[in-house]
Design a protein around this nucleic acid. Structure first.
Lengths: 335, 335
DNA sequence: AAATCTGTTGTAAACGATTGCAACGTATGC
DNA sequence: GCATACGTTGCAATCGTTTACAACAGATTT
C-alpha cells in the first residue's frame, strides 16, 4: 500500500467487489447501488487509489490531451491564448501539450509527426505556413486552425483582420491623415496579407493613394519595426502615419523614431495590431487594434473539444471581432 | 489499411514474423538480423504503421511527457523558458504539458493532482508559493523547481538573484546615486525577497541608508509599477534611483513618470530585472539584469530528464548567472 | 561426438483499466 | 404461480505494446 501505487484490483479486493464495479463507481456512479458505492469509495480512500490515465486511455482509445502547435513557443503573443485554452481543456479533463513548428528542420514533418504519433486527441495549429496536404492522411485526429489558416476549408477560429485594418485607417483618416503607410508582416503570411488587403480596401474607400514605396516589409519583430523606421526616416516624401501589422513592429518603429529625436504623434502617427500588454504603458501609449487573445484560446479549445467528441474532422469556423483601442500614438498630421 | 490504423500485429503478419520481432526491430534494431530487419521495415512502410504511444507507455510504465507548472500561463515571462524546455524534451522523446497553478481554486490541490494523476513522468514547478508538504507522498514522480523554490532541499535551477541586485546597486552607486529605492514583488515571493536581500546587502557595503519609506510594494505587474510611481512622485524626500524587482514594474514606473512630465534618467534613474524583449526598444532603453531564460529552460529540462532516467526524487541544484545590461535608463542624479 | 555457446526468433504473460454480455435476485404484471 | 422486467453485479475479453523466457539452429569448444 505504501511502496507501490494501488491499482483497481487492490480497490476491488478491499471493497469486496469486482474491478468492473469499481470502474463503474468511478465513471458512472448512478448505476451502482448506494451501499456498494459507499464501500468502493471507502476502499478508494483507504488505498489511496488514483486511476491510471495511461491504462484508461489505452482502453478508451484516446490520449486525454490536445496539442497546440505554434510557430514559435518563445513568442509571448501565444501565452495568453494558451492560458485561455488551458482553462477550458482542464475543465474537460484534457491536458495541453505544446510544441513549436519552426524549431526543427522541417515544419511540415513536425505536423505530420504529431498527426500520426497518436499522442493527442486533437491539434490546434497556429502556423499558416504548413502544407494542407499533410492533413491528407487516414485516421488522423481532428485539427483546428487558430489565428492563421492554411486552407480556408479547415475549421478555424480567427479574428477579423480586414476589419481591424479598416478601423485603423478610418481612425487615421479621421485625424486628418491622407499619407498613410503600412508595415507588413513576413512575406506571404496570411495575417499580414489579410491586414494589407483591409488596409488597401480602406484606402480606396477614402480615395487615398496606395503607394508602393510606403509599404515597408517586416517580420512582426521589434527589430524589423526599427529597420522600417530607418527606411521611413531616410525618405523625404514620406507618410505621416503608419499602420503596423503587429504591435511589436510598432514598438520598434516608435523606439527608433524617438531615439532619432522625432516625436510621436507630433512627427508621425503610429497604430499597431494585437494590443499586447505592454503598449499601454509606453510613452506615448500605443493606439492599436485589440485581439481578444484569451477568448481566442477559449473558443479554439471549445470548438476542438466539440470536434473530438463528435469524432469529426470537420467543423464550423468562427471569426472573432477585433476592437479599436484609441490611445495617444495617433494625432493630427503636422501642418 | 486505409480505414483503421495499423497495429503491430498487422506489421507482424505482413512481414511474416512475430510481434516481438517487430517491436525489437523498432526499439533495438541491433538484435535482429539484417534480413528480417529489412522485411519488418518494409512492412512498416507498407502498412503505414505508427507505434501507439499509449500502449507503449502503459507497458513501459511511463507517460512520455513532463509537465511544467507555472503560476500563470498568461505571463509571457515563461514563454521563452518553455521554448528552451521544449527543445530538449522533444529531443528526448518527451512531450511538454503545461498548466498553471493559480487558475483553479486551490493551487496546492493542483500540484497534488498532477503528482498523483500519473499523467507525467516528472514535473517542473515554477511556483514557490506551494507547500512542500504536498510532495510527501508515496510513488510520486520527480519534481524540479525552477526560478522560484519552496524548499531549498528540493533540486532546482535558479538564477543568482542576490548577485543581480548587487550588480544593480553597484551600477547606480557608480553613477553617483546615494538615495536608492526598491520596488518589490508580491509579499513573501522568494524571488523578491532574495533580490531585496541582495539589495540591502549591497547598500550596506556602500554604506548607504536603507530607508523603509523608499521600499515600494508591487506584484511584478506593470500596473503595480505605475502605482509605485504615483507614490514616488507624491514624496518630497525621495530616492533618485530605483531598482525594480521586475522589468514589468520598471516599465510601468517609467511610463507613469514620463506621462507626468518627468524624464528618465534625468529626473530619476531606473533599473529593472529580467531583460524582457521589449525593454531595449523603449525610450530610453531600460538598464536591467538579464536572466538567461532559454538557458534556464534547457537546464531545467536536462536536469529533470536526468532525475527521471535515474529514477531518483533528488538531484543537484544549479544556480545560473545573471548579466548586467547597461542601457540608458540610468544616469547621474540631478545635481 | 557431445557439450557449450551465440545469435535470432517466437510464445505468452504482463501493463491497468473499460465494457458487452450474462447472471442473479427481486419486484411487478397477468 | 409463472413470466417478464428491472436493477445490480461479475466474468472475461479487449486496447496495443514490451519483454522474460524458452526454443532453436548453427558455430565453436572439448
Amino acid at each position: 500500500m505504501d511502496g507501490k501505487i494501488a491499482t483497481i484490483q487492490d480497490v476491488a479486493r478491499v471493497a469486496g467487489v469486482s474491478t468492473a464495479t469499481v470502474s463503474r463507481t468511478l465513471s458512472k456512479p448512478s448505476v451502482v447501488s448506494p451501499t456498494t458505492r459507499a464501500a468502493v469509495l471507502d476502499a478508494v480512500e483507504q488505498t489511496g487509489y488514483r486511476i491510471n490515465t495511461t491504462a484508461s486511455n489505452l482502453r478508451r482509445q484516446r490520449t486525454g490531451s490536445v496539442i497546440a502547435l505554434v510557430p514559435n513557443l518563445a513568442n509571448p503573443f501565444f501565452s495568453q491564448i494558451l492560458a485561455g485554452m488551458s482553462s477550458v481543456l482542464t475543465e474537460a479533463g484534457l491536458g495541453l501539450l505544446v510544441a513549436d513548428t519552426q524549431s526543427g528542420t522541417d515544419p511540415d514533418e513536425r505536423l505530420r509527426h504529431f498527426l500520426v504519433s497518436g499522442v493527442a486527441d486533437g491539434l490546434i495549429v497556429f502556423d499558416g505556413t504548413l502544407s494542407p496536404q499533410v492533413l491528407d492522411m487516414p485516421g488522423r485526429p481532428p485539427v483546428l486552425m487558430a489565428c492563421e489558416w492554411m486552407d480556408r476549408n479547415l475549421p478555424s477560429v480567427t479574428v477579423d483582420n480586414q476589419a481591424g485594418a479598416r478601423l485603423a485607417v478610418d481612425h487615421l483618416v479621421q485625424e486628418g491623415h491622407s499619407r498613410i503607410g503600412y508595415i507588413a508582416g513576413p512575406e506571404g503570411n496570411v495575417l499580414s496579407v489579410a491586414r494589407q488587403q483591409g488596409f488597401t480596401a480602406a484606402l480606396q474607400i477614402h480615395d487615398l493613394p496606395l503607394r508602393a514605396d510606403w509599404q515597408y516589409e517586416g517580420d512582426y519583430s521589434m527589430d524589423s519595426g526599427m529597420v522600417a523606421a530607418r527606411r521611413w526616416m531616410a525618405m523625404t516624401d514620406r507618410p505621416t502615419a503608419l499602420f503596423c501589422a503587429s504591435d511589436e513592429m510598432a514598438v520598434g518603429f516608435v523606439g527608433a523614431v524617438q531615439r532619432a529625436g522625432l516625436r510621436v504623434p507630433d512627427d508621425v502617427s503610429v497604430i499597431g495590431f494585437d494590443n499586447i500588454e505592454v503598449v499601454q504603458h509606453l510613452t506615448p501609449p500605443l493606439t492599436t487594434i485589440r485581439q481578444p487573445r484569451n477568448q481566442i484560446g477559449v473558443r479554439a479549445a471549445e470548438m476542438l473539444i466539440e470536434m473530438i467528441s463528435a469524432g469529426s474532422l470537420s467543423g464550423p469556423s468562427e471569426v472573432i471581432d477585433v476592437e479599436f483601442m484609441p490611445r495617444s500614438s495617433v494625432g493630427p498630421p503636422r501642418a
